[in-house]
């Protein structure tokens, strides 16, 4: 028996996942019925039943969204704590990379939250109108979300079943360290160019949000997310750890760094997700939601301020940059 599966935190995590799957399965069956039979102009018992079930469906998916956010945060917490059981691991980086299922699982979980947020956004637009214009769309969309959850469960099972406590793994120093002659940064950028691109893309995204240029947001935001990941891991992270050789996206989730990783990554994902959803709304539904835009702006601004402040404080404290 895999010892990891007996870990209390893993048992709790897998139980939550099972519960999510249960909620999603009920929602899936209702979604399927809605896709097949929904006709708002009908006054038959079947349609009235569907309309009642539609509210159950909405509640289930909203619960799924709520718990998925906490579940993802808890997943990061669990893999961070599991480093004590995996030889060679010093933080979640070693644990998540211990087998080939970890990284795709984490990415899928983040993508899953994005999909659920997008679903919730369509739901709000649907209920705002008098005729449920997007009910079939959101039910069809949920079927895709359900498939994403199945994929998450598949990766969950494989990840934890293949997590060995007797096999040494590489941790952040190896995984994110600069190997001889190799540049880990994308597009062969150096740190200076990476930072220029980071701030430039932030200005573009932020400016596009102010100017409400949806198409530009849709293009620039994923690129900003990508560049921001490398910027935090390879530049800002070193100021958080106050060590130029410590390059890791996960150690900042630990107590020693005041769990700042949750705020940094949380604000980045919240900001980029909401910016993307705002742009999708504007392009597909011709709806410009001020609240979404404001949340995206505040989150992205907060993210950049937190990251930059680490560099500034380090400089004021020590008089030098790393």
């Amino acid at each position: 028996m895999n010892k990891i599966l007996l870990n209390q935190k893993v048992i709790i995590y897998l139980s939550i996942e099972t519960l999510l799957l249960l909620l999603a399965t009920i929602a899936f069956f209702i979604a399927f019925k809605i896709v097949k039979n929904w006709d708002i102009n009908s006054f038959t018992p079947n349609q009235f039943t569907l309309e009642r079930e539609n509210y159950l469906f909405i509640t289930l998916v909203q619960m799924l969204l709520f718990f998925s956010i906490f579940d993802t945060i808890y997943f990061i917490y669990v893999i961070d704590k599991l480093h004590l059981f995996i030889p060679g691991a010093m933080c979640a980086a070693g644990v998540i990379n211990a087998n080939s299922f970890g990284v795709p699982l984490l990415l899928l979980k983040l993508f899953f939250i994005f999909l659920l947020l997008l679903w919730q956004n369509i739901n709000i637009l649907d209920l705002r109108e008098k005729t449920f214009p997007y009910t079939k769309i959101k039910a069809s969309f949920f079927i895709i979300i359900f498939l994403a959850l199945i994929a998450i469960i598949y990766f969950d099972i494989n990840y934890f079943f293949h997590l060995k406590t007797n096999l040494p793994v590489s941790c952040c120093s190896t995984l994110y360290g600069q190997l001889e002659g190799q540049n880990p940064l994308p597009f062969n950028l150096d740190t200076k160019l990476l930072l220029i691109l980071f701030y430039l893309l932030f200005i573009v995204v932020f400016g596009a949000l102010i100017g409400e240029v949806a198409f530009l947001i849709l293009l620039a935001t994923p690129l900003f997310l990508y560049i921001a990941y490398y910027s935090v891991t390879y530049f800002f992270g070193t100021y958080i750890y106050e060590l130029p050789t410590h390059k890791c996206p996960f150690c900042m989730f630990q107590k020693e760094y005041y769990y700042i990783g949750y705020l940094i990554w949380g604000s980045l994902f919240l900001g980029t997700f909401f910016a993307l959803i705002w742009a999708i709304d504007a392009l597909l539904f011709k709806i410009w939601q001020k609240k979404l835009k404001l949340i995206a702006q505040i989150s992205l601004f907060l993210f950049v301020i937190i990251c930059s402040s680490y560099v500034a404080f380090y400089y004021f404290k020590n008089g030098v940059f790393l």
Binding site: I40, F43, E51, Y55, L127, R128, E129, K130, T131, F132
Partner: peptide, 10 residues
């Protein structure tokens, strides 16, 4: 207005 066809908010 077919009242029972309205979303809860409306």
């Amino acid at each position: 207005q077919a009242v029972h066809k309205l979303p809860d908010l409306h």
